[in-house]
Design a protein around this nucleic acid. Structure first.
Length: 292
DNA sequence: CACCACCCCTGGACGC
DNA sequence: TGCGTCCAGGGGTGGT
């Protein structure tokens, strides 16, 4: 379940491995995991019934073949591998996706569910693996196109969200504040784990209508979001089951979770058993005594 | 527009 | 052991 801290850890590990490397060969194995310019609008539609969509043929350049890696960017939970040509490949890991880098000659632990792979000029390899296929790849001729098509629709990056930005994201919305935090158009990068952790850290009940938060509470919540995400980045993310960074290493922040996955267990702050219920269609855990 | 139910997909946990 | 069932989750879509 890669959220912002996990994706940021993948970004930094990828950056050290890929920066300046030339991609000698790029291979797509599952065409419906990639969207290239010229594909049907919106790309592959998983719920599409009837006639199969007609995909444009994939060229090596669509997957950065022949390009030199100039940098790896992130907004919210999405990555962009930027080529020296200007072309970018946007990567979304979904919930089980991984971008794994392998040193020359080293084999992948598991080679099933590999949807794309790349060979670099130092003999190393990059692999996109995603068993549940909730992730995907999007190719764009330039960063401007990526922004226009995808990133402009996202809210401000949660790692640096200000209280003013969060206030705007929560204003005039009666849905539960937890649901608003999960909405990537409102704020980008927060998922189920860090939403629960940030709400606990700011003593706010996840069921509260977003618009009911006072200015003080919004400030407290913004600080809690930045704080928990920064600490999670320092711990290299949370590994519950699948998540690994580009080097294949797990994170350690799951050891520091206050509420996520602890339903019924005593609150670390007051000792009363943590409550759990569906909020915004997601399992949520919170402390009824601490969070108002 | 805001909100919500539902769907996509696989593997792990659990019950029998 | 092996089978069935349920659940996890980010995000897109289509209905209200």
């Amino acid at each position: 379940m890669p959220e912002l801290p996990e994706v940021e850890t993948v970004r930094t590990t990828l950056q050290t491995r890929l920066l300046g490397r030339v991609i000698e060969r790029a291979t797509i194995k599952r065409r419906d995991m990639l969207v290239v310019p010229g594909d049907p609008p919106g790309g592959f539609s998983r719920s599409a019934r009837g006639a199969a969509p007609r995909f444009r043929r994939v060229r090596a350049a669509d997957l950065l073949g022949g390009d030199r890696v100039d940098g790896v960017l992130r907004h919210g939970k999405q990555l962009a591998i930027v080529g020296a040509s200007g072309r970018v490949l946007c990567v979304h890991l979904g919930m089980s996706g991984a971008l794994l880098w392998r040193a020359p000659g080293k084999r992948l632990e598991r080679a099933d569910h590999v949807h794309a792979h790349w060979r670099l000029d130092d003999g190393s390899r990059l692999v996109f693996r995603d068993p549940r296929r909730f992730g995907g790849l999007w190719s764009f001729p330039g960063m401007d196109n990526l922004r226009l098509a995808r990133w402009d629709a996202l809210g401000p990056d949660a790692l640096a969200v200000t209280s003013a930005q969060l206030g705007r994201a929560l204003a005039r919305s009666r849905r539960p504040v937890k649901a608003a935090l999960l909405d990537q158009r409102a704020i980008a990068g927060v998922g189920n784990i860090y939403a629960d952790e940030a709400l606990f850290g700011s003593d706010i009940d996840p069921r509260r209508p977003a618009e009911s938060l006072t200015r003080t509470e919004t400030t407290r919540l913004a600080r809690a979001i930045r704080g928990v995400l920064a600490r999670a980045v320092r711990a290299r993310g949370s590994t519950l089951r699948d998540y690994r960074d580009a080097d294949g290493d797990p994170g350690a922040f799951q050891l520091a979770h206050s509420v996520y996955g602890r339903a019924g267990l005593p609150c670390h702050a007051c000792g009363s058993p943590l409550a759990s219920a569906l909020v915004g269609q997601r399992t949520s855990v919170w402390c009824n005594a601490c969070q108002a």
